[in-house]
Simulated scan of single mutants.
Amino acid sequence: MEAAPRPREVSAELSQGLENLLLGEAPTLTRNDVVEQAGIDLGTASALWRLLGFPTVPEEAVAFTPMDVEALRASAELMRLGIVSIESQAALVRTLARSFARLAEWQTRLLAEIRIQNDATDAEHLALVEQALPKIEAFQDYVWRRHLASASAGLMTSEASAASGELLAIGFVDIVGYTSQSKKLDQGELIAWIESFEAAVTEVVVDHGGQVIKTIGDEALFVTTDPRSAAEIALVLTARGRDENDEFPAVRAGIAYGNVVRRLGDVFGPTVNIASRLTSVARPGTVVADRGVHEVLCRDHAPEETRADDLVLRRIPNVSVKGYGKFDCWVVRRAKG
């Protein structure tokens, strides 16, 4: 059996070469140079740098390029145009920083793995990155614009509706026995397992017209415009988890319907909290819904067991949910026959 290639050490030359390539050129400016050229006060620039999650560098360090100057100018221009207010700037920048930091870490690991597999020299690796970088950048821009177009079509609402929120169905899908299962896997296996879970959930959610808001390790949060779609997504995923021939893990789900506030790609409000709490009520392989879902699916009926087309909703009375006391919820199942 042929041994796997041993990774080459990352030399100072390769590290510096990658930095120069990614920043567009070698750093030539200090922090004060950037502030002076951008025409922004040092306090504002430093605050923006911290919000972006970038490491603090000594005042005299030559660590910046004209790209940093242009970024500060663009930030100031967005505020001047009213696109980004002083109040919203911090939250927006933090959200951008978290998203791109995660993306950058994944892309860096991918390039590092390719370098190891190819047993590439420093020059060969730099050439590969230089060739791939414009394509990655263009693809990221394309994905962003497509998501922006999709979000704009659905979220260009009035100030009143934006303030009060919008009616959405919220779903949480949680892996059963995640802690015990994760202990049996090495780092690579655990990453592959989680990525497979995220990919499967995203595929089902998108196929049913929903949107994955975020995944947090063993849990995924998604939204749909109607409870029926949310129930269908949850039922498909829990059914896959019960199938011993399917590699998808066993899961449980909680869904709720009501007013939700969207902000910077996330969702907030009691409806979100209730859906999350209901995952702890759900048994492995089951879906539990709140009254909002029941009222839409079953309208004016509230017996112990209610049919909604091909679904059956069985009431669980007086469930105690942390932060909300006792309330009724329903187990959602497909009707037999």
Rank of each mutant, 00 (worst) to 15 (best):
E198M: 07
V205R: 05
G209R: 06
R31F: 13
R240D: 04
E304L: 15
E195D: 11
R333M: 10
F197T: 05
A120Y: 00
L133Q: 13
F222Y: 11
R283H: 13
K214C: 05
R98E: 13
T157R: 14
A160L: 12
G254E: 06
H147L: 14
R314I: 03
A289Q: 09
D300P: 03
Y257A: 08
K183M: 15
E105F: 07
R145I: 00
A169K: 04
E105N: 09
V93M: 14
A63T: 04
I255S: 05
G53T: 06
M1D: 06
E13W: 10
A26E: 13
V34E: 11
V331C: 06
V281P: 02
V35K: 02
S161F: 07
L126E: 12
V267H: 01
A112F: 03
T121D: 10
T224N: 11
Y178C: 07
G337D: 13
P58F: 06
Y324L: 11
E305R: 15
A38I: 14
V319H: 00
A160V: 12
T238V: 10
A97N: 05
V129W: 04
V312L: 15
I233F: 10
D186A: 06
V62P: 02
L111G: 01
V223Q: 06
R240T: 10
R98N: 12
A335D: 10
E59C: 03
Q187M: 07
T44G: 13
T44M: 08
E105A: 14
A231N: 01
S276G: 09
T157V: 14
C298R: 07
I175E: 09
A231S: 12
F100P: 00
Q16E: 15
A61Y: 02
A104M: 13
D174T: 04
I191L: 09
V223L: 13
W193P: 01
A91F: 08
V261W: 05
A275N: 02
V260C: 04
E87L: 11
E159M: 11
V321H: 07
V281W: 10
I175N: 09
L278T: 08
D243Y: 01
K322P: 00
P284D: 15
A38R: 12
V204A: 05
F54D: 08
S182W: 03
F139Q: 14
L14I: 15
R102I: 01
E13C: 07
N318E: 09
A26D: 04
W106Q: 11
I136A: 13
A104E: 09
I114D: 03
R283P: 00
E36T: 14
L168G: 00
T286Q: 13
V35P: 01
L42G: 05
G209C: 09
E159L: 15
T225F: 07
S11L: 12
F172G: 04
L81I: 07
S280G: 03
D174N: 08
